[in-house]
Simulated scan of single mutants.
Amino acid sequence: MDELIDILDTDGNYTGNSIMKSEAHKRGIFHPSIHVWLYTKNGEVLIQQRAKNKDTHPGLWDVSVAGHIGAGEDVMESAIREVKEEIGLDITENELYKLGVYKYSYQHHKDLLDCEFHHTFLSELKTPFSALKMQESEVDDLALITLTSFQKELESNVNSKKYVPYEMEYYETVLNAIQKRL
Rank of each mutant, 00 (worst) to 15 (best):
D2T: 12
I5Q: 04
D6R: 03
I7R: 14
L8S: 03
D9C: 09
Y14G: 07
G16L: 08
G16W: 10
I19E: 12
I19A: 10
I19F: 11
H25D: 15
H25V: 09
R27T: 13
G28H: 09
I29H: 04
I34D: 02
H35W: 11
V36K: 05
L38E: 07
Y39H: 14
E44H: 10
Q48E: 07
Q48V: 04
R50W: 02
D55F: 03
L60F: 11
W61Q: 00
D62N: 13
S64G: 12
G67E: 05
G70P: 04
G70D: 12
A71V: 10
E73D: 09
D74W: 13
D74Q: 13
V75Q: 07
A79Y: 04
R81W: 03
R81V: 04
V83E: 03
G88I: 14
G88A: 15
L89M: 14
D90P: 00
N94I: 10
L96E: 02
Y97F: 14
K98T: 05
G100C: 06
G100M: 01
V101C: 06
V101W: 00
V101I: 01
Y104Q: 05
Y106G: 05
Q107G: 09
H109T: 03
K110H: 11
D111H: 14
H118W: 06
L122K: 11
A131R: 14
A131K: 15
L132R: 13
L132S: 11
M134S: 15
Q135W: 11
E136W: 14
S137G: 14
L142H: 02
A143T: 06
L144M: 06
L144W: 03
I145E: 05
I145Q: 03
L147E: 12
S149M: 00
F150D: 09
K152E: 15
K152S: 13
E153D: 15
V158K: 14
V158P: 08
N159F: 09
K162W: 05
P165D: 07
P165F: 08
Y170P: 01
A177H: 01
